[in-house]
Amino acid sequence: MLWDIFWILAGVACIIAVVLGATSYLTWYERKVLGLIQVRKGPNIVGPFGLLQPVADGIKVLCKETIFPARAHVPLFIFAPVLTFFLALASWAVVPFDKGLVLADINVGVLYILALSSLSVYALIIAGWASNAKYPFLGALRAAAQMISYEVSIGLIFVCVLLFAGSLNLSRIVEAQKDGWFVFSLLFPMMILFFVAALAETNRSPFDLPEGESELVGGFNTEYSSMIFAMFFLGEYANMILVSAMISILFLGGWLAPFEGLSFIPGFVWFAAKIALCLFVFLWVRGTLPRYRYDQLMRIGWKFFLPVSLFWVVISATWVLWRGYGVG
């Protein structure tokens, strides 16, 4: 009993350490990739290849002064970044890193992820409202509308994958791809849709309108500084990694090796490699595409993504009825 609790806590500590490490190095990865895209070197002063840059950034942000706006609702103002950070970490509880390597192997893992991602809207709304200022409030309203719109399509895309896998359990979804990943099936268009919807869901460029600096200063986090800003920042990057992990699990076969001959390499290495690949596309998009206008964002969300994903649910259901679960 006591040992069970100890092992669970050890697992939680491991996951938090890995996710936080990955998150801080994602900032380094982003700056390197953006640097290469723009033909410069990126961070290269602190440590070899600038590898210690995240540490330096962390120390800098810890030493800064925390400023609360005079008319802010202080408890909620602090609660918002804490909520973002908490949700970004809590979602990892159900992610299978390797065969059997998962903290909570629950039957409704997909729903758990979806529920937590729908909760993360609140952090942004609360931040915007608690700041009691115009720009954060506008940013929060944009974030709320944007995330709700894209969550609908993300839910429908999940349904397509679930129809193919025949289970809501993330480990079983990966197992269902043993004979062929879901990318190489009827679900390929859904992967592209999921990726674009994920860009909108995580407020990443080209859909980073909630924090569009050219119109809203900094959006919902305009008034934030120091550690509470860092929590927003880390939460956003942890969410990016989580979404990449979801793409790997739902479409790219999670911990499975691409060929049978390569399965001597441990599963979590494959999983990490797939996540790194997805993250590269995230950064590539950021370095390439200009920002969308808000009405364009809403139009493709409701008038393209929603009907297409709904139609694809029908197609997937027909296919599964005809050929049975899985790709074969």
């Binding site: 529920a115 729908s118 909760l119 809207v121 709304i125 709320a144 509308a145 839910g155």
Partner: peptide, 15 residues
């Protein structure tokens, strides 16, 4: 309940 009520309905209330 979390997805529908908390994630959608209550967000609109708050909105």
């Amino acid at each position: 309940v979390l997805i529908v009520y908390v994630g959608a309905v209550a967000v609109l209330f708050l909105f």
